[in-house]
């Protein structure tokens, strides 16, 4: 299963990024083969709607789950429409979160926040 984590750098020594839409990279990790690759997040420098664009790229990468500390409501709408599951990370370590995910210990992310730039939000 292909999972995605927003990260600060493009190496396995990096940490989970606190932002989803504006994370500099996404780690794409295959839980079966344990292969990893990194995707540049071209949405990070967007003027607006970064979450939407980042979510679109992840959907296009055919990931089945996203592990993230937080997610805005616009991005969540894209992710949900694509049928991808959102899980809440437990700390900033990639290894800990991958391990917890494999053991089925991660909870679904349910506290979706309104947009940070007066875009989303109702």
């Amino acid at each position: 299963m292909k999972i995605v984590i927003p990260v600060d750098n493009n190496s396995m020594e990096t940490n989970v990024c606190i932002s989803f839409g504006r994370a500099p990279y996404f780690l794409i990790y295959d839980t079966k083969t344990e292969e990893n690759s990194f995707m540049d997040n071209s949405a990070a420098s967007s003027q607006g709607g970064a979450g939407i664009k980042a979510a679109q790229s992840i959907v296009d990468s055919r990931a089945e789950a996203i592990l993230t500390p937080r997610c805005g409501d616009n991005a969540a709408e894209v992710i949900k429409a694509a049928g991808i599951k959102l899980y809440k990370t437990v700390n900033d370590s990639i290894q800990d979160n991958i391990k917890a995910f494999k053991e089925g210990k991660l909870n679904l992310l349910d506290d979706i926040h309104p947009g940070l730039h007066q875009h989303g939000g109702k």
Binding site: A43, S46, Q47, G48, G49, A50, I52, K53, A55, Q56, V59, N74, E77, V78, A81, A82, G83, H119, G120
Partner: peptide, 14 residues
């Protein structure tokens, strides 16, 4: 402004 996304054969407008 990334107001559009194309998901599962459908265009979504924000």
């Amino acid at each position: 402004f990334n107001a559009l996304a194309y998901i599962k054969d459908k265009l979504i407008v924000f």
